[in-house]
């Protein structure tokens, strides 16, 4: 199993590698979650969920279950 956004530690950056479009909200894709874009874990909420991300300059939060659908390559 490859690494996903859910595996990122606070402050870590990575490149988005792959995801299956039907498993994640289209809104997320439109906000810049696209293969090749950078992603940084800004912060985790207290109970480890949701995740506060910086995707290519857009700051947003998503739930862990979605984050686990998006595989990455750490920088």
């Amino acid at each position: 199993m490859s690494l996903t956004i859910a595996d990122l530690l606070k402050g870590e950056k990575a490149i988005i590698k792959h995801f299956v479009a039907k498993n994640i909200p289209l809104k997320l894709i439109e906000m810049g979650c696209i293969e090749g874009n950078s992603v940084e874990l800004v912060q985790r909420a207290p109970l480890k969920d949701p995740l506060y991300l910086n995707i290519n300059g857009t700051y947003l939060a998503i739930r862990k279950e979605i984050a686990a659908q998006i595989s990455i390559e750490k920088l």
């Binding site: 909200p25 809104k27 906000m31 800004v42 506060y52 947003l60 939060a61 998503i62 979605i66």
Partner: peptide
Amino acid sequence: KSYFVIEMP
């Protein structure tokens, strides 16, 4: 499906 996405402005 709860597609929870929130922008953090």
